[in-house]
Design a protein around this nucleic acid. Structure first.
Lengths: 200, 200
DNA sequence: ATAATATTTGACCAACTGGTCAAAGGAACG
DNA sequence: CGTTCCTTTGACCAGTTGGTCAAATATTAT
C-alpha cells in the first residue's frame, strides 16, 4: 500500500518531524495540537494526517529517532582511553548537544518529567543496560586508581544534569546571564569541575 | 464581596491548590484540564471555579507560592559562614526539597522548559537579582582564597541542575537505580563533588 | 494523451475544553 | 422561625480538539 517512498513523501515526513519537534518540545505531548504541527509544517491538517496516522505516531516517531541520537555519545566512551579525558570528552559532547539540539533535549525532558509514559520501557531496558555497562567501566577505573572514587550512577546523572540543564532551562540561564553566551563559559566550568572531581 | 475567608473557603482553596499542583506538575499548563484538577480536588468544576476565577488563576497562584518557597534556601546563604559548608548546606537543602517536594520542582521545570511565559519577569527580576548578589559573595570567597576559583553563575546552575535532576527526572533515575533509594547515595555524591570542586 | 496513482483539501463530526448561570441547598444569625 | 449570605450543582454554551471522508488536484507511468 504505502511502500513507495517518493521523494515528496520523504520530504514531507521530514518537514512534519521537524515541525513536530518544534511544537512538542515547547508544549509537551498533551499541550501540543495537530493544528500547530500542521501550521509549523506548512501543511493542512488532513494532509499531515495523510503522512502520519495520528498525533501520537508523530510523537513516538520523534522520540525513538531522538533516543538513538541521544545515547550515541555514551556508547562512544572508550574503556581503553584515559579515564578523565574520556569522561570529559563525553561531557563536552553532551554539552554541545544541548547547544546544537536544544529542542531534542526539551522534548525528552518534557516526556520524562511527565512520567515517561511512552518511553518508560526504553529507560528500564536499553538505557539501564547501557548505563550499567558504563558504570562497570567507571568502577574499574576507580579500582585501578586511575580516577578518584565516585558513585558511577551518580557521576553519569551529574553529567546529564549539568549538560542538559543548559538546554532545558535555557530561559532561566539566559535570564540570569543576560547578554553573555552561556555555553562558552559553561564548557570551561564543566571541564574544571570534572577534572577536580576525578583527577587523582 | 469576597473578603470573608470562612474556614471552608480556606480549606477548599488549599485542596484546590494541592490538586492543581498534582495535575499541573504532571501535564504542564496546557496539558492539564480544569476537570482533572476538579476531580483531584473532589469538587465539581463549577464549584472549583467558585474559588478560583480561571484555570490560569490556579496556575499562577501555585507558581508564585512555589517561588517563595523555592528561593528561600538561597537567601539563607550566609556570607559570614564557612564558604564550603555554606554552599554544601545550600546544596543539601536543595536536594532535600527535590526529595520532599518533587511536584513543585516539576511544576517549575515544566514552566521553564516551555519558555517560562508566565514567570519570565520574575526570572529576569527577583531571581537574577538574588543570583547576582550570591555571585558577589562567591566571588569574594574566591578572591579571599577560601575556595578554589569557580564561575559563580555556573556554580549556582550546577547546584540547581544536580539537585533538581533527582526530582524532575525521577522516572529516569529510578529506572536505572531500580530498588535503591536515589536520594541517600545522591547526598553523599553531592557532598563529595562539592568538596572536591571547592575545597582549597 | 490517458489511465492509474499519489497528494491535497474543504467540509464535517463527536468528544472535550474553559467557562457561565440560574437555581437549589446549607450555615449563620437575629 | 425567617432572612441573609455562602456554597454547590445541573444544564448549558461556544470554541477547540483529534480525526474522517469523498471529492478535487497533481504527478507519474504507459
Amino acid at each position: 500500500m504505502k511502500k513507495a517512498d517518493t521523494r515528496i513523501q520523504k520530504k514531507n515526513q521530514a518537514v512534519i518531524l521537524k515541525a513536530g519537534l518544534e511544537v512538542f518540545s515547547q508544549y509537551g505531548f498533551r499541550g501540543a495540537t495537530i493544528d500547530q504541527v500542521a501550521e509549523a509544517a506548512g501543511l493542512s491538517k488532513p494532509n499531515l494526517l495523510y503522512y502520519f496516522p495520528s498525533k501520537e505516531a508523530i510523537y513516538t516517531a520523534l522520540l525513538s529517532q531522538l533516543l538513538e541520537h541521544w545515547l550515541e555519545p555514551l556508547k562512544a566512551l572508550d574503556r581503553e582511553g584515559d579515564p578523565v579525558e574520556e569522561i570529559l570528552s563525553y561531557a563536552k559532547r553532551k554539552l554541545a548537544m544541548s547547544r546544537d539540539y536544544p529542542q531534542e533535549s526539551r522534548l525528552f525532558a518534557n516526556e520524562i518529567i511527565q512520567g515517561g509514559p511512552r518511553i518508560g520501557d526504553v529507560l528500564r531496558g536499553e538505557l539501564k543496560e547501557l548505563v550499567d555497562e558504563t558504570s562497570k567501566v567507571i568502577d574499574a577505573w576507580v579500582a585501578a586508581g586511575r580516577i578518584k572514587p565516585v558513585h558511577p550512577y551518580h557521576l553519569i546523572f551529574s553529567i546529564w544534569a549539568l549538560t542538559q540543564h543548559y538546554a532545558d532551562f535555557d530561559v532561566q540561564v539566559r535570564a540570569i546571564m543576560g547578554d553573555q553566551d552561556p555555553f562558552e563559559s559553561a564548557e570551561d566550568h564543566l571541564e574544571v569541575v570534572i577534572r577536580r572531581v576525578l583527577t587523582i
